[in-house]
Amino acid sequence: MSEIDLLRESVRRFAREVVGPTREALNHFPERPLPAGIVSGLGELGLFDAEIEPGLVSAALEELAKVAAAPAALVLTHAVARALVREAGGGRSAALGGLNGHGIFACPIYSELDLTDGAPSLRRIGAEIELEGTAQLVVGAPLAKVLVLPVRDAAGWALVGLETSEPGVVLGEPLLTLGMRGCPTADVSFQQRRFPADRVLATSPEVVRRVARRFRGAAVAISAGILASSVQAATEYAQERYQGGGAIIEHQEVRAILGRMLEDLAVCQDSRELLERDTVPEWRALAAFLRAKERAAHATSDGVQLLGGNGYMEDYGQERAMRDAKQAQFLFGRTDVARQALAGAVP
């Protein structure tokens, strides 16, 4: 068994035995507490390790997302934030020794990380920096040891890394979001607090573009995992649900909807596989990334539709899939903004 298959199998078992029974509680976070054992279990699987490769992350996330996408979003965010620190060379800083240690890393992964709109502002004062403002929707922040945040520099863009325990880092209440509800997310505020200047990890957004390119496959794996479970639930329901004188799968329109969902699942899985290759031209990789996330978001809405009223209720899991897939579409930012970059990547 290859390393990737071993990990898949371990994650599949963990998802089934540990995550599955807690799905309802995960779905009601932050109204209910986060179920115990999820975060520690993910750690025991090595999913928060420093050196985990994007390919392994991708395999793990697809299996996790088939059961619950929220823990998958937490793992992806951590992997991306950690990779940003490594890529920016932040771990070399003595003051940032903590950034190489254990603990969860957080970042605003649903935003365009290479832009700074709405981000805190940074002012350089001698050997220090001053941060002011609020970083919004920082994924993983309530659990994190390290925050990796784009900020507005006088010169434009900068990336900072901070420990959540540092004075001046104010963590907001966990936010209620459209999907991925068991993945704790919060705003992080700064009120003109000063930090050592070596908290600045990078000043060129190219670093986040490089990292985002490496983790596109992992992001699509989440969409693929969500959609796979939605297709499976919809198919089982269509075979069992009696309406119009027979199982609804006998209705041509139902078959057409299921067929479209499978087409979209194939797009997601093909895209994930394509994105795991090293030699794919940028325009094809970006196109596959955008297409897969968008198709999964629409297909999971069809998954709800296929179950009718039952699909709209929490019991069948389809509504969660629809919300999670829509939120997953925003991993690394808006589709339409990225699509414009695609136009510039013509071969």
């Binding site: 935003s111 979001t177 459209l178 539709q305 699909g311 629809m322």
Partner: peptide
């Protein structure tokens, strides 16, 4: 963008609310 994913934006609520309209009073199918 990301701001729309938060409940306090009000927009993600409309997304969830609107889906039911395609289902009740007879599905759109």
């Amino acid at each position: 963008g990301a701001a729309g994913l938060r409940h306090d934006s009000g927009i993600e609520k409309i997304y969830r609310d609107a889906k039911l309209l395609q289902i009740y009073e007879g599905t759109n199918q």
